[in-house]
Design a protein around this nucleic acid. Structure first.
Lengths: 239, 239
DNA sequence: ACAAATGGTGCCAATTCTTGGCACTGTTTT
DNA sequence: AAAACAGTGCCAAGAATTGGCACCATTTGT
């Protein structure tokens, strides 16, 4: 049996039987007493907290709090988790956010450094605030699922993004903007873009955007998005 | 050099150099061509997608989407992430929530089954809704950081919880309740408890709770908490 | 006080796994 | 046809793991 498999088997056994002895483990996983002791030492090095009561009637016991999950996450998944926690933290004084941050920090540490840079720059452009309760939500539609990936790719590649937009009065226009930031005023999401044709920032409600696509062979510079206290003022969105 | 370290080195190199050859990798990590080929095979088994163009001018290329992060998370950390995503989903139609769910599902799958059961039962008691905009938040205080762990332990162990409570009019009372559910009306958190002395449910704003502790040697049964549509009606909280 | 049961460590030879070299195959580009 | 590349099978040399042993420390029951 493999070292890895044996370690897994030992952890599982420790979990199942509240308390075991080294000899019982040895016969269970089919290894010698010495090897099991070595394995336990290795598991402790990995962070598992295994209590041991020495003496007659003693035994090994695994601290359930120390059980760790080895999750394999793809980059978009980490990304989604990151945004969830960021939004959660922005939404209020949530007592779990410290723990969630710690978890994300671990995930982030395991990510490739260039991806972390991408994520940070994406998070920097993410502004989360509270929506004014006066906002009329009756016409809220469903967001195009292709929008987020397109925006992410365009933002990171500094490419312009092109889409059809339907404004509050139902007028339809074609837009081509530099994606500069994203604003979440839950449950509404806004794309903040610099419109070169109008030489100014524009806000677009994401559920009013359709057929988004990145424009190849273009590039733009990052601009300082004028948010007050990292939150877009309500009046801005009335335009 | 260790097998593990070499694998990491190979992944890093593949990430840095867009495209490489087996021989270049071999000299870089200080191993033989044969070993590198074996490593690449192993990495592919682990889920990395490594494209290989054979022939003159060929080379290896790592699919960036396949890069996975192997995060080691403790149970409380997973827990915190889970709550964040659950709250996020409840808060609105967030386009990332599907991805976040997928990430959490993977994490959950890697958790020991008994812990998953704990988490589920905890999540079942978690109710998330929107706070009425009329709520006066001026007196919102900071939540005792010891409260959540105490509540979690008490809830899972079906132990009573004891604390000091300061009500809306500033009156202080000692309470001893069965923790039945938790209600988040962001940014306020409420503990929903069954008060045996009053033979009824009571809501407690968590930032008004102090010195919480679990009461040993007691146990209680789970009750059906009367939420309408999984959200506590606003009037309930005015008491 | 003593014996038994238990966890824990150091040492070393036996066993098992990993590695490197080699020959070979197959594909693509020049 | 030649060169450059990925990929596979085989096997001996080298490296790591394993098991056995002696031994120590602690606890509990007799």
């Amino acid at each position: 049996m493999n070292v890895r498999l044996r370690h897994d088997a030992i952890v599982r056994s420790l979990r199942r039987n509240g308390t075991t002895t080294v000899d019982a483990l040895a016969s269970e996983v089919g290894a010698s007493r010495r090897t099991v002791l070595r394995d336990i030492s290795a598991l402790r090095d990995e962070g598992y907290v295994i209590h041991s009561d020495v003496g007659r009637g003693g035994g090994l016991q695994l601290d359930p709090q120390s059980m760790q999950t080895h999750a394999k996450l793809s980059v978009p998944e980490v990304f989604a988790l990151l945004i969830s926690v960021a939004a959660m933290r922005a939404a209020g004084n949530l007592p779990f956010s410290d723990l969630a941050d710690a978890g994300l920090a671990k995930i982030e540490k395991a990510l490739p450094s260039d991806k972390v840079k991408d994520l940070r720059s994406f998070l920097d452009c993410l502004h989360i605030g509270q929506l004014s309760p006066l906002q009329d939500l009756s016409d809220m539609g469903k967001m195009d699922p292709a929008l987020l990936p397109t925006f992410e790719a365009a933002f990171l590649g500094r490419q312009l993004i092109r889409f059809d937009y339907r404004d509050a009065k139902g007028r339809k226009t074609k837009r081509q903007v530099e994606p500069q930031a994203m604003l979440i005023l839950s449950p509404l999401w806004y794309l903040v873009g610099w419109d070169p044709a109008r030489d100014d920032f524009r806000h677009f409600r994401m559920d009013r955007i359709s057929t988004p696509e990145a424009v190849p062979d273009t590039s733009f510079r990052r601009r300082h998005v004028p948010f007050e206290d990292d939150v877009c003022p309500y009046s801005e969105l009335q335009k």
